[in-house]
């Protein structure tokens, strides 16, 4: 059996809100295996994005641990870890300058060959390389952000609602792009989405989160259509309404 690339053991994060301690990620354990797409679904505020932030170590867990390639998260220098576990934000933020500037910001000394490959992977046109990104559409910006993410050669990519800030016309193209990149790039992708339909289109494995807890895991159809847990059944009912 394959070794997990990323393991999560009893992971939790609690924050203080209005003087009260609230658990936003609550005792989550799961193993992510290489070369697969996982989708994390659940209602808004269920802790999906907070979990992703813990995996990339943008936030610090208050309990539990994340293990990357058999080694505790904390044993890696954070900057090195983040290059291996990349993160794509819901709203793409591009740095000032051209597409090339953005790619070189991620990794200096990228060869022309590597840049060409990144453009191909993100389905960007070669003539876009030296164009300022200011006038790019939302979909194009997200493609540039994906190319920039891939420039650090990550082994795991964390995609936080990658299409929710985009015009619906770009959704399908970005979804296909994600599936394509994972298939070709030997990557593990963990995609957060609030849409079960999108999860069905993208992934095979799904995790359902409710109130910070992982309530259902397994094959995507089963998680969405045949949940075993009470919270899972409740989520399904709400989706059907």
């Amino acid at each position: 059996m394959a070794t997990p690339v990323l393991e999560v053991h009893n992971l939790g994060r609690a924050v203080t809100q209005d003087g009260r301690v609230k658990s936003i990620v609550d005792d989550i354990s799961y193993n992510f295996f290489p070369d697969k797409i996982y989708t994390i679904i659940g209602p808004s505020g269920s802790g999906k994005s907070s979990l992703l932030r813990l995996l990339n170590r943008l936030d610090e867990p208050t309990s539990g641990e994340v293990v990357f390639h058999g080694k505790d998260h904390c044993d890696y220098p954070p900057c090195e870890l983040r290059q291996k576990i990349g993160y794509l934000f819901q709203t793409p933020y591009l740095f000032e300058g051209t597409v090339r500037d953005n790619l070189l910001y991620a990794t200096k000394n990228l060869s022309d060959e590597s840049i060409k490959l990144l453009l191909e992977q993100a389905q960007l046109k070669p003539e876009q390389l030296d164009r300022p990104t200011d006038n790019f559409s939302g979909g194009e910006k997200q493609r540039v952000a994906i190319a920039r993410l891939l420039a650090t050669c990550p082994e795991v990519v964390l995609l936080d609602e990658p299409t929710s800030a985009l015009d619906p016309s770009y959704t399908e193209a970005i979804e296909k792009l994600i599936v394509d990149i994972v298939a070709k790039g030997k990557l593990t992708a963990i995609v957060v989405t609030h849409s079960p339909e999108q999860a069905l289109r993208i992934g095979k494995e799904a995790l359902l989160m409710v109130d910070g807890k992982l309530v259902e895991t397994g094959e995507i159809n089963q998680v969405i259509n045949e949940p075993q847990s009470e919270l899972g059944k409740l989520y399904k009912q709400r989706q059907l309404k």
């Binding site: 983040r82 709203t91 740095f95 910001y105 650090t152």
Partner: peptide, 13 residues
């Protein structure tokens, strides 16, 4: 925050 975290997420200090 988004600009800064976008850089941090790419492995920048």
């Amino acid at each position: 925050r988004l600009a800064i975290e976008s850089a941090l997420a790419l492995g920048k200090g």
